[in-house]
Structures are given as C-alpha cells and as structure tokens.
Design a protein around this nucleic acid. Structure first.
Lengths: 125, 125
DNA sequence: CGTCTGCTTAGACAAACGTCGAGACAGGTT
DNA sequence: AACCTGTCTCGACGTTTGTCTAAGCAGACG
C-alpha cells in the first residue's frame, strides 16, 4: 500500500505512549502517522464512533455487547465486526465474563489522539 | 449507506461549533457521530495525517502544494486528491495566490475533535 | 500569442470496507 | 445430554478508497 513508507511502520503505540507533540506544532513523522492513522480510521465511521462513546462513557467503564447491539439498526455480526475493528485499532479491550462479552476503552490511545489534535486556544491568525 | 441513521444526519458542524462534550463523558448522539466521523476518516490515512500536520505546523499557518508534494513518493494528482479529501472534511482551506495554491488549517474543527477525544487525566479504573 | 509550469479533474482499476446470511463456538438451563 | 441464547467467524456482494495515467484549466513569461 502506497510507496511513501520509507521508514519502518512500527512504533508500538498501543503499548506505551512516548509520542505525540501536537500535530500543529511539529511535523508528524511518517512512522508516527502510519501508527496513529489506523486509530483515526477506526473512529471514521459513525457507528464505530458511537460504539466507542457508548463504551467509554458506560458506567463502570465497560459495556456489554448485548447493550450495544440493540442501539443500532444493524445485525449482530455487523456490530461484532465494528467492535473487532475498534479492538484491532487498540481503542478498546474485550473480556468474556460468563455468557456476555464486555468491552472497555483504552484511555491511553485516546489521550494520544487528543494530544495530537490539540491546538493553541488562540494561536495563528 | 447503513440503516442506522434514524435521526436527521445534519448538524452543520463545519460552520459553527456548538458541540462536543467528551466522548467518554456523554454518549455521542447519532447526528453528531455522522457529522464528525468524516473528519476522523479524513485523518485515517497516513499520507493525509502527515499533510494535515505539515499544513498546520507550517510557518505563517499555510503551506504551498509545491512544498507538500515532493515530501511523498506519490504523484501530484494523488496528493491533490488527498488535499481535496481534507478540504471536503472541513479540515483545511485552500487559496490560490498567483501561480501557487496555499493550504491552511481550520483550527475550529481540530479543536472539536480534540475535545471529543479528551479523557480525564486519571478518570475511571 | 504561444508555451511552460503548477494544480486539478476525469477515467480506470485493484484493494479495502460495510453489510448481510449462514454457520460455529461458548456457557448456561432444563 | 439436549437445547437455548449470546457472540464471533466465514463467504459473499456491492460500494468506496487509493493510486495511477492522461487530459484540462490558470497564471506567468517569453
């Protein structure tokens, strides 16, 4: 995919968080862009954005799939697919407890994304 | 596309900015998700993320296409296409001045996205 | 006026995405 | 054990995306 990835597209951002001076402050290097873009892409769908919010804002910090699915006019497999996308992007974590599966947010990555998008309150112009 | 948009998918977020309590604080309504997701999607590509950063961090707040294009191993039309995507997402603005076209960031939308992703320094868990 | 350079548009194509239905697996219940 | 319910995996189908080449438009310059 693309010819522009000259440097190694590996940063391990889901583990620790060494990165992220604001996007508008310093030019984001290719490696960082390649590592963080998937997270933004995962949030780039209305359904997943709502899912992310429902999970992150849920009481106790976790939400059951059985509560998430009926909130949309979509089939179970489709919701499951979107949750898998969020999981693979490192935005959420899943845990099975008895009959139900619970999802919880990973605040670290969310913080990185927020930090990257941060702009001075009244910077340029 | 999708059957889940029961409420009106119209919010006009690119104009003013009435929105955005943090994603983890209150459940994002469908309309807001539909309005903001395209911006995240636009940032969900490594090339566009770098372009966005190069534009936002450029001196004088603007960057010439002639400076952006040679930073990637991609053809001119491809860069132009990505810039159009950023423009249509409301993230940047373009202006032709003589021979060259200059792009500048729209901080308002960036701030909305950052606000949405904001999480308490040490909230839940 | 002709031509050159910078940027965008148009068309084409492979790859990825969003959705679904059918089926598989895990756990609880009878 | 047999069954039921909740969730995920698998394949399929139509749409969208990222990239390219070729062609078009806008200014600058000879």
């Amino acid at each position: 995919m693309s010819k522009q990835a000259a440097s190694s597209p590996r940063l391990d951002l889901t583990a620790d968080a060494p990165c992220c001076p604001p996007l508008a402050q310093r030019r984001v290097p290719a490696g960082t862009a390649a590592a963080l873009a998937p997270a933004f892409k995962a949030l780039g769908d209305p359904v997943r954005l709502q899912l992310m919010s429902m999970i992150a804002s849920a009481e106790g910090g976790e939400a059951c799939v059985c509560d998430l699915t009926p909130a949309f006019d979509l089939t179970g497999p489709t919701i499951s697919h979107h949750l898998k996308t969020l999981r693979e992007a490192g935005l959420v974590d899943a845990e099975r407890r008895g009959t139900w599966v619970y999802y919880r947010a990973r605040p670290a990555l969310l913080r990185q994304l927020a930090a990257l998008l941060t702009v001075e309150p009244t910077a340029a112009s």
